[in-house]
Every structure is written in C-alpha cells, then in structure tokens.
Design a protein around this nucleic acid. Structure first.
Lengths: 223, 223
DNA sequence: AAATATATGATAGTAATACTATTAATTTAT
DNA sequence: ATAAATTAATAGTATTACTATCATATATTT
C-alpha cells in the first residue's frame, strides 16, 4: 500500500510513557502485536512479553498500565493509520461516489502488505482489530474510557465516511449506522469466513466481502 | 411477547450436568444471567455466584465446566428461543416479503418483556447477548468448539432467515452475509446507542435500528 | 572525570482467579 | 432402613495482573 514515511501521533492519555520514545518502547509495541495475534488477547501476558523481548515485566508496566491499555493503544494506532489512508484515498477525488467507494474499499479490505518502514506490522494489526477489538470496548468501563477519548480515532473515521455518505445523498437518515455497520460487519465476515463459514458467502479469490458492502452501501443510500 | 409454555432443549454437549434437572441447576442459570448482566462477564465468577445463590462453588462446576461453558449455554438457549419465535412469526404468513419483515423485526428489536413462566429472564439475556456474546466466539478455541456444535443454534437461525431472503429473491448472492451482518449490526447499534452514540443515529422512541435494518435488507435484495 | 539524573532490571510479594481434589453431610430413591 | 446420588465444606494449586523496592546500567550535565 502507501509507503510514505508517515508518523502517527497517539493521544498521551493512552500510555504512561510514550513507547515511541525508546527502543524498549518500540519493541514492546511491535512484539505485543505478534504475540497477541499468535496467542490471542486472553493468553497474552506482560510476563510472556517480557521474556520474549528479553526485558522485565515491571519495565513494560512503565509504558502501559495494563494489557487492556496496550490494546486500546494499538486500536487507536490502527484507526489513525486508517484515517490517514482514508484522507489519502479521498482527497482530490472529484466525484463523491468515487470517494465513497474508495472509503468502503479501505474499510472492508483485508490488509495484506506491511509497510515495513515502521516497527508496526499492519497486517497483523488488522488481524488483531478483527479478532480482539470488541474485547476492548465491550467492558463495564466503556463510559469512563470513552469520556477520556479512548475511542476518538475510531469515531472520527466513522464521522469522516458518514460525511461522504451525506455528500452522495444529503437526505440519508442513518449515515453513522450505515458506516459502523459496514466496518463491524466486514470484520465479522472476515472472522466468520475462517471460523464459521456458514455465516458468510465468502468464496476464494472473489473478494465478496468488499463487493457485498460496496453494493449494500450504494443501494442503501441511492434510492 | 409470546407466552406459550415452551420448552427449550439444549444440546447435552453444552453442560456437564443438565441444569434443568434440578432446583440448584435452574438457580445457577437464572442467577448467572442476573449477575453477568450486572457485573459483566469478566467480573462474574462462580465463587460470587455460589455466594449469591447460597451454594458452593464446587457444586456449580458439576453443572458447567467453566464460566465460558456457561456463557455458551446461555447463548444457545437464547438462539433456540429466537428460533422458536422465528418459526412462530413466519409460519402461515403467505407472503415471503412479510415473513422476511417479521424475521428482521425479531432479530433487531430490543427484548422488553420477560416471559415470566420460565426461570430465564429474556430481557437480561438479550442484554447479555448484545454485550458479551462476542467474548464467547472470539476465542482461540473457536474451531474446536464449532466442531462440537457450540454455535449450531446461531447458525441455524441465520440459515432460516437466509432461506426467506432467497424466497424473496432467489438470485441474491449473499444471503448469509446479509443476515449475519444485520444480527451483529443490530446488536452493535444497541450497545453503541448507549455508550458510543456518535456511531449511531438512534433517536429516543423512533425505533431507528429496526427501521434501518428493514430498509437495508429490502433495498439490498430487491434491486 | 565526577556527579547526577533517568531508564531498566531483578526480586519479591499480594490478592484474586479459575479451577481440582477430598471428604463430610444431606437428600432422594428403593 | 439402606444405598445411592447430590450437595456442601474445606483446602489446595498454578497462574494472573499487578505493586513495591532496590540495584544497576546508561546518558547528561558540569
């Protein structure tokens, strides 16, 4: 995909010490992505991460107060990165319809290439978003965390795409619902296609998820 | 809602000892629903449940091998109950379009009345499905569990409604995707409307979730 | 080069979780 | 009344998700 050496800035409320500020911090982030992908979020622990990067559990806690906080950090990194790609894919596109199509493509496609410049593997991060992000926001602390801005980047992406929906059809009543349905839906479909295929109609190499959601959006708003 | 004294049978693989077979078993199920709703799944423990029903932790383990198993049991109970309601809401309805509408209503509405005949509070159970069910199937053990039939009832509901979709439009390519998107989407929207409202367009008393998904389905398949 | 500050590491400790095992008491069935 | 089954009580285990303390290594300033 795009390979500009972009820099993604993360809200300081999402870490105790900025992991970008040191070698250890970057290792924590980069290895945690690999490990969460491999082990799943529940089996991933800071102790295991410490062993894997040859560092100490207590040092990791200096960067993130909990593994939940780390997951929230990763989710925000991902959505900031998507937001960057979204802006990139929609500026200078004259037609609103085309902008929307580019946006839906971006939100529903599988991330397949890692921008190997940064220490963050976007392919694995996309897999984590699909499999683990519900565990971040389906918590009893959601309201508190939301008030602190923990989910702002995600909400901003939805807002941006909703705005494009309204460009195409200013009278459409439910742009936010439509876009959040598409995002969550596409993630579910990717997961289901691997583990509960009878809930999908995915066929090898046919890109049905992207097609299905593009179609759905178009029909929903242009009628 | 419907108030026939129905009996819902659960696949014996989903429990160690049938909770319906004893007073203690029924108390376990009924109190666990209250407690999971109140505490959230992660803070809910068998120890706390034991205290709450005046019984012993070890006795609960004779019915369910883990709290995860209990959650899977509840999810299956819920989908069996929905399946019953689905059959009820669609048999003897001559028009396929109307059948489909009834089905989408059922899948997207909020459950508001408890059928107080059984010891299971369907209002709370619906809330649990919305907030906690992703935690059941987003696990590393999904494939194993799926092979054991842990998610059969959910899949069956999707199949049944997909079949109605195909009655309305036999050429529609993605019935399973459409219906699983609607089910998961409606649940997300209910949760978002309470906690991340900017991701939705819910308005008090306007039933927008049900309207949105009915509209979406109709437009998706009849064009 | 010495003094100081900062980051990291090592070790230990805590309360809680998710169980398992054993044995005793109680209830139910025959 | 006796046997069988169910439930309760108690204890114990390995692991988790941290916190606290102190030592050491590295970097910065003077």
């Amino acid at each position: 995909m795009e390979s500009l050496p972009i820099h993604i800035t993360i809200n300081p409320q999402l870490y105790t010490k900025n992991p970008e500020s040191s070698d250890l911090g970057r290792k924590i982030v980069s290895k945690s992505i690999e490990m969460i992908d491999q082990l799943g979020f529940e089996s991933f622990t800071f102790r295991k991460l410490g062993v894997a990067i040859g560092s100490n559990e207590s040092s990791i806690y200096r960067y993130f107060e909990s593994k939940h906080a780390l997951l929230v950090y990763l989710i925000n990194w991902y959505w900031s990165w998507i937001e960057y790609n979204l802006v990139f894919a929609t500026t200078n596109v004259p037609s609103s319809e085309e902008k929307l199509k580019n946006a839906i493509d971006l939100l529903t496609r599988e991330v397949k290439e890692d921008n190997s410049i940064s220490y963050i593997n976007e392919v694995l991060l996309n897999k984590i978003i699909i499999s683990e992000s519900a565990k971040a926001y389906y918590t009893k602390d959601i309201d508190e965390e939301n008030a602190k801005g923990f989910y702002k980047t995600y909400k901003r992406v939805v807002q941006r795409v909703s705005a494009i929906v309204l460009e195409v059809n200013p009278k459409f009543e439910f742009p936010n619902m439509l876009i959040s349905t598409v995002i969550e839906g596409a993630h579910h479909q990717r997961y289901f296609s691997k583990h509960l295929p009878s809930l999908t109609n995915v066929e090898e190499g046919k890109n049905n998820i992207v097609r299905f959601y593009n179609d759905l959006v178009l029909k929903a708003i242009t009628l």
